[in-house]
Amino acid sequence: MSASVRPVQLFRNLNAKIAAIPMILTALVIFVGCSFWTIFYSFTNSKLLPKLKFVGIDQYERLWASNRWLISIENLAIYGFCTLVFSLLIGFLLAALLDQKIRFENTFRSILLYPFALSFIVTGLVWQWVLNPQFGIQKIVRDLGFESFTFDPLYNPDIVIYGVLIAGLWQGTGLIMCLMLAGIRGIDQEIWKAARIDGIKTWKTYVFIVIPMMRPIFITSLVIIASQIVRVYDLVVAQTGGGPGIASEVPAKYVYDFLFLNQNLGQGFAASTMMLVTVAIVIVPWAYLEFGRRKHG
């Protein structure tokens, strides 16, 4: 009896499944399908148009022998590490400061979040002017009387990537701050009261009680920051154009330039495949720990 009544698994929640079909198809065809297509063609010597002339791993050999690619990777590593650390740190600090029941909290929050409303292109241009030695910070400080003051990160190949980093942090930290503030406000007031009764210092309460409780918020922030890091492109194009020389090149720009400017699809595909692999190396172990562990109890 029970066996004949039991519905087929496939047809459970049928409406929801039908509704999900377009998204499933999009994901399969666009994301997975096109990724495999790209990887496949990275083993060919396609120039302007995709061609099926296989050259093995030539494109990858050339990629890793290319000075520009190595500099791009190094820049992304520096930019990525610093963005991650400073976004979380500054974002949390600002949120904690705003949490002190200060006056004009709304105003401050708006001011700090405002840069996020600007595109990376505008951000890049603004900071190009701010950091320009003839018009920006250096000029102002020199006019104040410090004649020998020098601050021209965008014209110094050794530190140019930090100039880009400043602009990136200015743009992105506000959002992280808002997320953190929401997280802090989500902590039950009873916990604060309990901590106060126990005589725990405020900063200790933040570090040892609030932060561990905010784990989901931190993970959300982490994902948002990480995606911003990998796709950093427009900021560099607007702010430095990859210069001086090739000192502030990033992988995404390498991919774009080879696909569309240098008319070498094979090389661009190889570079984008390497970007995918890098992301996978970071994501897969984390996803395994995060989701796999729960399943096994």
């Binding site: 120039k47 000075n67 520009r68 190949p157 001086p244 020389g245 240098n262 008319q263 070498n264 090389q267």
Partner: peptide
């Protein structure tokens, strides 16, 4: 030359002149 080779030459010289 192809845009590909010229692009590599461009990269080389912009690096050379700045470093």
């Amino acid at each position: 030359m192809t845009p590909d080779s010229l692009g590599q030459i461009n990269d080389l010289f912009v690096e050379f002149f700045n470093d």
